[in-house]
Structure formats: C-alpha cells, structure tokens
Amino acid sequence: MKPLLCVHNISKTFPGHDRPVIKDVTFCVYPGEVLALVGPSGCGKTTTLRTVMGFEHADAGEVLLGEQVLQREKTFVGPDQRGIGFVFQDYALFPHLSVLENVLFGLRGAAFKKRGGPAMTRRRRAQIAKEALWMVGLMGLEDRMPHDLSGGQQQRVALARAIAPGARVILLDEPFSNLDPDLRLATRNEVRMIAHRAKMAVVLVTHDQEEALSTADRLAVMREGRLVQTGPPEEVYNSPATAFVAQFLGRTNLLEGDATGTHAVTPLGRVELEHFTRGKVLLSLRPEHLSMQPAGDEHEPGALCVGKVVSREFKGHDMTFRIRLQSNRHEVSVQTDYATGLAVGDRVCLKARTPAAVVEPDDMTVQLTVPTVG
C-alpha cells in the first residue's frame, strides 16, 4: 500500500532562535491510518503540522501528497492548494453561518477546483456538503447555528468542512482538548471510525498520552523537535527505546541492572529481558507488568519477597502501590486490581510478569534511588 502523505527530513528554525523547532522530522501516513504526534508542550508537534499544511515554510526537507510534491527545495505549494484538511483546536466555525453554510465555505478556493471548479452549481456543492455531514453523523442539523450545537457536534462540523473538498489527508491539532472526558472519548472514537471507513490518512497532534495510545494506529513520539520513536501504540508503550519515551507514556519503573544475555540482575532480583544484551543496562518495567502477593502466602515460582508497602493509591477500578525494596534504596510502583487487600507496612513478594525493556538513558531519567530511612 502506498502512503497518502510522506514527510522527509523537514526542519524549521524561527527568526531569533538559535535552535530549530523541528529537526529532520520524517514519517509517512497510509490510507485509513491515524498517526498521533505526541510529546510534551513545546516539542514541535504543532509546528510539524503547520509545516505539512503549508502555514509554515520548512527550511529543509520535502512534503509529498501521493506523487505530488508540496515542498522540495524551490517548490512550495500554498496551503489553499494542497488538498489537505485542517481542523483547529477551537474548530474556527463562523458563528453567523449555519452548519451547512460552514461546510459550504470549505468548498471554496483552489483546492476545490479539482472537484468541478467555479462552474459547479450551488446545488451540487450543497449535495457534497450534505454527504460530508452524513459521513460525520450530522444529517438533519444543516440549519442549526454553531451556538446551538454541543462541543462534539461543533468538532464534527469542522471535520466535515475539512472532508468536503475531497481531502484524503486530515490534520487535527489538539481537536478534543475542549471537550469533557465522556464526549472526548466518544468523539475521538468517531474520528477513528470515519478515517478507517473513508480510507483517509489522519495526523493527530496531542499531548494526552491516553488519547494517543487509544486513538492512533501508530505513535510518533517527539522530543525537542525530533522524532525519537515511531511504531504501533502497544509496541512503543511496552518496548520504549529511551527512558524519556518510557516515562512520557505513563508510569514506569526504571531499574539499573547487569545483563548476561537474556536476563539481568537488578534490585528486584533476576529479571528476563526482551533482547539479548550484556553489561550495565537500564530497564523499564511498567507497574502493571509486576505481580505482587503478601509475603506470608505461598507465592508463585520466581517471586522474591523483597519489599514492603510504603503507600497505596486507590483509583476505583485499580490500585497503585509503592513498594520499598529490601535494599532500602529503591522503590517501585505496582498496579493491581481494585480488590488487592494490602496495607501500608505489609511485606510483599514481587515478580516481573513480562520481560523488561532495555532503554537508553537520557537527561529525563528520574532519580533511581530514594534516601535511606530508619
């Protein structure tokens, strides 16, 4: 399958800045795929999106829409001629126009000439606009004004306006951040379904790790203007390449160890590794990848009675425990179901349920030890 959108080594430095905002960013997006650009604030996600759209002119690199060159050296296609849809964070709907009129507005300009140009009748344009509204589930609301719609409905109007001109690539910049949690979940599921059904390529920018993991077909994690890891959500979450990726995508336990092939000796005991390696290593084990039992119980083979509970965090559907290991210099987090009946001070047995990921250390690595206490 050929990609709909490819970005190769794009870089951008703003005037007055010594360092590039984005540097050598490369990725492709395929029909029916949602790619999430995720990273902390200021890492270059939105600048990447604006450069792909043509709102910013990259200093280097190329942007391809199928076989069409949108930017390369002296070639630059303006944003209104790229045939790419863009949905802003605040949706940017016209308050004085109805739902249908807002979508019709998206059928103006150079990008729409490919679907019939100025000679196309208003009746035909209205038909196309209604088809886009049907695609996002808003049929019957054509005459509503934006202030009469819910936040999720407004978001879908903005999406319909982006789809209507025939765009097969849609860029979404933090599109769900203004919605309440339940509506955010429902709306992002709808966007994912629309993308898959219409075989569109979607690039979603978000700083919300849960949103990225649950919505995207692939993640592209950014840090300081560069892509540091790209892959399916499960792969990036379970097998992070660096300590930064491990920590950014959720809680994790970072443990130093001595590796001898497929195992390493750590403060948690001897743990299995994802890959064959030797020497000093830094390992990542998610809290849910550790099992825990009271020390007095008959524990499963391989479990070590190595710590005691120093805190517990009840979250309704599950619980997170903080365990101080026997060395008294390390603590780990363990996530269990809601029914685990352990209290602060209880001694426990721990075991890694999955092989640990070997990660590259970086300056984002948290302190691995805790002060010694009596």
Rank of each mutant, 00 (worst) to 15 (best):
V7Y: 06
S11T: 14
K12C: 08
T13R: 14
P15W: 12
T26N: 14
T26V: 05
C28V: 05
C28R: 05
C28M: 00
V29L: 10
P31V: 07
E33V: 04
V34W: 04
C43E: 01
G44M: 09
V52N: 01
F55I: 08
D59E: 13
A60K: 12
L64C: 04
L65D: 11
G66C: 02
G66I: 07
Q68Y: 04
Q68M: 11
Q68F: 04
R72D: 11
K74C: 04
T75W: 03
V77D: 04
Q81D: 12
R82M: 09
F86P: 07
F88R: 01
F88P: 07
L97P: 01
L97G: 00
V99M: 03
L100M: 13
N102D: 10
G106I: 00
F112T: 12
F112S: 11
K114C: 01
R115N: 11
G117C: 11
P118C: 00
M120P: 02
R122S: 13
R122C: 06
R125M: 15
A126F: 01
A126T: 11
I128S: 10
A129S: 05
A132F: 02
M135A: 14
V136G: 07
G137Y: 10
G137D: 09
L141S: 08
E142C: 13
L149S: 13
S150W: 05
G152E: 08
Q153D: 02
R156L: 11
R156E: 00
A158F: 02
L159H: 13
R161S: 04
I163W: 13
L172Q: 02
N178C: 02
D180F: 05
P181Y: 06
D182F: 00
D182I: 11
L183P: 08
R188E: 12
R188I: 06
V191H: 04
V191I: 15
R192I: 04
M193I: 03
I194Q: 07
I194T: 02
I194P: 10
H196Y: 10
H196A: 14
A198L: 15
V205L: 11
T206E: 13
H207L: 05
Q209V: 06
T215M: 11
A216C: 04
A216Y: 04
R223W: 09
E224V: 08
R226V: 14
G231Q: 05
E234M: 14
Y237F: 15
A241C: 04
T242S: 13
V245A: 03
A246I: 08
L249E: 00
G257W: 06
A264S: 11
V265H: 00
E272G: 00
H275E: 14
H275Q: 13
T277W: 00
R278T: 15
K280I: 00
K280M: 01
V281C: 04
M292K: 02
P294M: 09
A295C: 12
P301W: 09
A303E: 05
A303R: 02
A303Y: 03
V306S: 14
K308S: 14
V309H: 07
F314W: 10
H317N: 12
R324D: 02
Q326S: 14
S327A: 13
N328L: 12
R329D: 09
S333T: 08
S333V: 03
S333R: 13
Q335F: 00
T336L: 03
T336N: 05
G341Q: 12
L342E: 09
R353D: 15
T354G: 00
P355T: 06
A357S: 15
V358Y: 03
V359G: 08
V359E: 02
D363W: 05
M364A: 13
V366C: 01
Q367H: 15
V370H: 10
